[in-house]
Design a protein around this nucleic acid. Structure first.
Lengths: 257, 257
DNA sequence: CGGTGCATTGATCAGAATCAATGATCGTGG
DNA sequence: CCACGATCATTGATTCTGATCAATGCACCG
């Protein structure tokens, strides 16, 4: 997740980012954004960017800070420019699942009804771009291709959600963890190949909430994988992880033994 | 699910539905469709309908017949006109989850990549409308509002998928079943109110595959709810169900006891 | 009428949850 | 800079839910 590293660097100015900006300034803002080529923004040509800059407002969040609260009025669409966020849902009694992790380029707040369907908190230091609904709708009207981009992003999310349903509905603890590590490794690797070294800014609590497991169970499975030599914590940092055998991980991800 | 009743009635002619139809005939076809006001089609005005008719091909399926196979080339977009279908994903070793049930108006085959991300089988006798990708893309280009409709449908599906993740990640067997019955009752009730009499064309096998439970477990939970007087099989038909107390069901759906 | 296949029920097992205790880490303030 | 407390991770012991295994019952169909 290379975007994470640039979390603090991107877009230093904060004060000037109120309701609207001069087009010239705004253009350079979106042009130099680390998410320029991703998500929503990739649907716009350079010359169309100022329109987006004009309606989007930058905002930063500290780790664990709430970004979106389920059931709130869905007044804005968020695009992550750097960092990572967790998307989750909660039951009345406090139980929760993390339904996904979002990174640079991902959109948050695509609500079908008038209200957000999930909550979002920052995982790492997080930067987002907010565009409020009315202005967003104008942009979409003027640039219909944006909707196509939104649709394909929603489809991707849907596919990811269904994969997660498969994981939660069928897989045991070991398979869940291996599937998760593998998908993170693939996200970080080049063209679909899983990277053997893995940057994991996500706490174990959050991983267990994502996998539908208790922290204790996650800890035990993690230990088992280490003892079997499948993975190793990289010395020196707790957020780096080394996978000794991607093949072994792939086996474990789909086959109960 | 009123649409189910019309499964056999809708669109009797089959032979004439090859590559293209005369606009007049085609118009009346979509105009009188039971899904006219739903899904994709609701995005088109009456006078735009012939364009859709011209590119859509009708097809019927018997219960349990496959409609879409995961990983196949995604060559068409399906819209259900009547009946019910199950959407599911499978692991290499055969384990499977049903990720959702689709009824009249629902779209199937919205694939982000070039391939279907899931399989679909008919649950009841099923009628669908197929539109092949290239023609569909033309239609979308000429009627951009269709994409908006697709987007909001995808968002709804995404929300449903995330609810299912919450169910599988957090809830116990009783809560799962109650949540399911409740959502089915709501689908069949008027304006969000759950209906106390419930038409359930879905086999217990499929219900258990949807809830991430074994058939034996489902059977036991079902029995418990009956013994507690929360639900009752309506005498005379095994696909009808009566809920004695929606409130009780709502309690059970979200609260571990 | 017998057979096949699915649903139910019962008995047992196992995987993960829960409960509990200890140990590591981090931030804080003395 | 170190000591302390708080928080979180790990490990162990035990429980419990749901899975699995097995037997019986029932319905549908040839």
């Amino acid at each position: 997740m290379p975007a994470v590293a640039t979390a603090t660097a991107a877009l230093a100015s904060n004060a000037a980012l109120a309701a609207s900006c001069a087009a010239g300034r705004a253009k350079s803002r979106c042009m130099s954004c680390s998410a320029r080529s991703k998500g929503l923004c990739s649907a716009l040509k350079d010359e169309e960017l100022p329109r987006l800059s004009a309606i989007s407002h930058h905002k930063d969040y500290a780790p664990e800070e709430p970004v979106i609260r389920e059931a709130d009025e869905a007044e804005a669409l968020f695009t992550i420019t750097s960092g990572m966020a967790k998307v989750y849902k909660t039951l009345p009694d406090g139980r929760r699942v993390i339904t996904g992790f979002a990174t640079a380029g991902d959109a948050l707040g695509l609500a079908a009804g008038g209200r957000y369907a999930y909550s979002v908190d920052a995982v790492t230091p997080l930067s987002v771009c907010r565009a409020f609904r009315p202005q967003m709708e104008t942009l979409v009207r003027e640039n219909p291709q944006v909707q196509g981009r939104l649709l394909s992003m929603a489809s991707l999310e849907l596919t990811a959600a269904q994969d997660q349903i498969l994981l939660l509905g069928c897989k045991n603890a070991t398979e869940r963890l291996c599937s998760f590590l593998l998908s993170m490794a693939r996200r970080q690797g080049k063209d679909g190949d899983a990277s053997p070294t893995l940057y994991l800014p996500i706490s174990k609590q959050d991983i267990s909430a994502y996998l539908g497991l208790r922290p204790e169970t996650l800890s035990r499975v993690l230990r088992k994988l280490q003892d079997n030599g499948v993975i190793a914590w990289k010395p020196g940092s707790r957020v780096h992880l080394k996978v000794s055998s991607i093949e072994r991980l792939e086996e474990l991800a789909n086959a109960a033994e």
